[in-house]
């Protein structure tokens, strides 16, 4: 298994990236699971988000970026706000996919509180339905790099 993976790594041949450091916490606020699948794939050998120094963390306390997917359902809104409240300053919010950006497939208006912008200040936007792993990695990297230096996590 290890030798097979070594072959994959050589075949994919990813470059080392300029060093950075950023911790990301995902909140699924009603997505179709597509963004989650692609975010997981971002950590795999083909994309390897960790080589950027990016890590998905287990707790919002550890996170610099709150990554939100889904159209923000009414039932997830309190949990989403609690996750934001749990983060230490300074904190950033990123919208993952079309749903939190308001452009996704519409849900019943009674059941959603979104788009994300209506409930939290959005700093980074990663469109797509769902964005591919490559688009997620680039979206995060470029989005973070575009921030003024004092707001950048690293």
């Amino acid at each position: 298994m290890l030798t097979r993976l070594a072959r994959v790594r050589r075949a994919v041949g990813l470059e080392r990236r300029p060093p950075a450091s950023c911790a990301i916490r995902l909140v699924d606020a009603g997505s179709c699971n597509g963004c989650e699948h692609e975010l997981v794939a971002t950590g795999g050998p083909h994309h390897d988000l960790q080589r950027y120094g990016f890590a998905i963390t287990a707790s919002p306390r550890h996170a610099d970026v709150l990554l939100v997917s889904g159209p923000v359902t009414t039932r997830m809104l309190p949990a989403l706000l609690r996750a934001y409240a749990a983060m230490p300053e300074p904190r950033l919010v990123a919208a993952l996919g079309d749903c939190p950006l308001g452009g996704g497939v519409d849900a019943h208006p009674d059941e959603v509180a979104g788009p994300l912008e209506r409930v939290l200040p959005v700093d980074i936007r990663i469109p797509g339905c769902p964005p591919t792993p490559g688009q997620i990695a680039e979206g995060l990297r470029v989005g973070l790099a575009a921030l003024p230096p004092e707001r950048r996590p690293w």
Partner: peptide, 14 residues
């Protein structure tokens, strides 16, 4: 794991 991963200095950046 077949990844490039972060370099050993990553903990210091973190």
């Amino acid at each position: 794991q077949g990844r490039r991963g972060a370099d050993p200095l990553q903990p210091y950046r973190d």
